[in-house]
């Protein structure tokens, strides 16, 4: 078997791969199989963010042209397009989307990520990411104002002088207003983490939550 063609083909080739597939893919798959994957509509009805409404008020003409009214439909549409741009521009190669339980990450960004947060179509394929050139974004919602993001996408160094993030001029129209893609990506970014109960207080904007409460039972 060890040196025969069929041994190599069937045991090493098919067999070992199959084994790893069972352990490393099918197993986690079945663990979460019972959890429903939310579609865009279900995500939208969970709550339209303040920032989406704010975009509509700030850029009424442009908003009307691109998305019409503020509604569940337009919100889910914006999320979809924003997510698409996030993937296409490879934002996920510079930004992760999970907060780890180590290295003080919960102090920096907020609650540690939970598996069920990722059971939705906007995490398909999942956007965990592997490199943090910029900060994690899974708790980005409401951390910054829309205006900040507009300035940031136009010229990141204008708000963060040491930034090495690219400027995304094509998220803007000829007059310098965010275009459809621009509004969509801001909507998407401002939505990340908005589903948490702690939102938006994990940014320390609420009463006294900047320092996390001592863990119960911690000695």
């Amino acid at each position: 078997m060890f040196e025969s063609k069929s041994g190599i083909f069937f045991v090493a080739g098919l067999g070992f791969f199959g084994l790893s597939f069972l352990v490393m893919a099918v197993l986690p798959w079945t663990i979460y199989a019972g959890e429903k994957e939310l579609d865009l509509n279900e995500l939208a009805v969970r709550g339209i963010t303040h920032e989406f409404v704010d975009l509509a008020e700030r850029y009424p003409e442009q908003f009307k042209k691109h998305f019409g009214e503020v509604s569940y439909e337009s919100f889910s549409e914006a999320l979809r397009i924003g997510h698409r741009a996030y993937v296409a521009e490879a934002c996920w190669h510079c930004h992760s989307q999970f907060v780890r339980p180590v290295s003080n990450e919960d102090l920096r960004w907020g609650p540690v990520s939970h598996a069920l947060e990722y059971q939705n179509v906007l995490q398909r394929p999942v956007l965990f990411g592997t490199r943090r050139v910029g900060p994690d974004l899974i708790r980005e919602a409401a951390r910054r104002s829309n205006d900040w993001h507009v300035a940031h996408f136009w010229k990141p160094t204008s708000v963060a002088p040491a930034s090495v993030m690219p400027s995304y001029r094509w998220f803007f129209d000829a007059e310098g207003y965010p275009n459809k893609k621009g509004m969509a990506i801001i909507t998407y970014i401002q939505w990340l983490g908005s589903w948490l109960e702690e939102y938006p207080y994990f940014h320390g904007e609420g009463p006294d939550v900047a320092a996390p409460a001592p863990k119960e039972g911690a000695s």
């Binding site: 790893s20 597939f21 490393m24 893919a25 986690p28 798959w29 663990i31 979460y32 959890e35 994957e37 598996a115 069920l116 990722y118 059971q119 939705n120 179509v121 995490q123 398909r124 394929p125 999942v126 965990f128």
Partner: peptide, 16 residues
């Protein structure tokens, strides 16, 4: 990960 599995399980497959 594109068509069949989502979420954290897809992360496992992506790593694989």
């Amino acid at each position: 990960p594109q068509y069949f599995v989502g979420g954290a399980a897809a992360g496992a497959i992506g790593g694989l």
